[in-house]
Design a protein around this nucleic acid. Structure first.
Ligand SMILES: [Mn+2]
Ligand SMILES: [Mn+2]
Ligand SMILES: [Zn+2]
Ligand SMILES: [Zn+2]
Lengths: 140, 140
DNA sequence: AGAACTTTTGCAAATCATTTGCAAAAGTGT
DNA sequence: ACACTTTTGCAAATGATTTGCAAAAGTTCT
């Protein structure tokens, strides 16, 4: 309830309406501290709210991404399902186990590299994406 | 013709049959030194061979990826079309202009970072993906 | 070169993730 | 509670990629 109030404020600040669907999606993402797919979120929430639709989940996630409170990433090498995670804490990257899917957050090593590349290419660098893939201790 | 002979050998070495579709796809990828989508390749080749199908292009590209002579990458931030490029030269990454799509190859800065992360996490690192996004000199 | 055998292709339809149109329902300010 | 605007449910569409199957092409052996 404390949590919900927080989220309610967050949504109000963004200037979008406080709906139960939005609160539930954000609550779930906050409690599961890992990237989730729209289908993950939908599966989890539809048991409490059978009327919920996957399109509603997508619409809200896209909205959150546009409002910069959620980031959208392509996490898996083969599957092309998008993952979403709450933007909180520092900018970071991910290490993903190719076998079990476990995800470890990684600090960003690219500050200097970016400015070097910017000088070399005369591009204005706007953002970057980095993922490492491997086998976790249990899976190797 | 010299080129085709080379490619023919390449396919024979892989133990897959030499078909005109395969030769044409590889020729196109070699001449266009940039990542291409299946649709790019299809559009370009179907004028000479109207019977060619997109599914044939996909099947062959997937085959090449499995045989490790082509790499498949998700290049654009928003679009989820895959890009393919011939594996030749050094392992590298890409800098992509958000406006015009121009792609610049980047040398890999991650050797040391990978081993550091491997020690810290006890993961066995298998591979990584890095992309930078920005605006090229002309677009900024 | 021709026959026998195996792989690849053309073609159509399916699949998967995601988006969209529209009317009904819910949220917001007064 | 009212009027107004946004969001949702629902169904259907979309875009990229894959698949089943019969015909065509490539390969091997003679
Ligand atoms: Mn994360
Ligand atoms: Mn490249
Ligand atoms: Zn694992
Ligand atoms: Zn550009």
């Amino acid at each position: 309830m404390n949590q919900s109030l927080n989220l309610e404020k967050k949504l109000k600040k963004l200037g979008i309406r406080v709906t139960s669907q939005r609160i539930k999606i954000l609550e779930l993402m906050a409690e599961q501290q890992r990237p989730l797919t729209a289908a993950d979120i939908f599966a989890r929430l539809k048991t409490d709210n059978p009327k919920l639709r996957l399109s509603t989940v997508y619409r809200n996630l896209n909205n959150f991404v546009a409002k910069n409170i959620v980031s959208k990433i392509e996490l898996k090498l083969d599957k092309k399902e998008s993952y979403f995670e709450l933007l909180q804490g520092e900018h970071h990257h991910h290490l993903i186990c190719l076998n079990c899917g476990q995800v470890v957050p990684l600090s960003c090593p690219l500050e200097d590299y970016e400015s070097k590349i910017s000088k070399e290419t005369n591009y204005k660098i706007v953002e970057h994406r980095l993922k490492l893939y491997g086998l976790c201790p249990k899976c190797q």
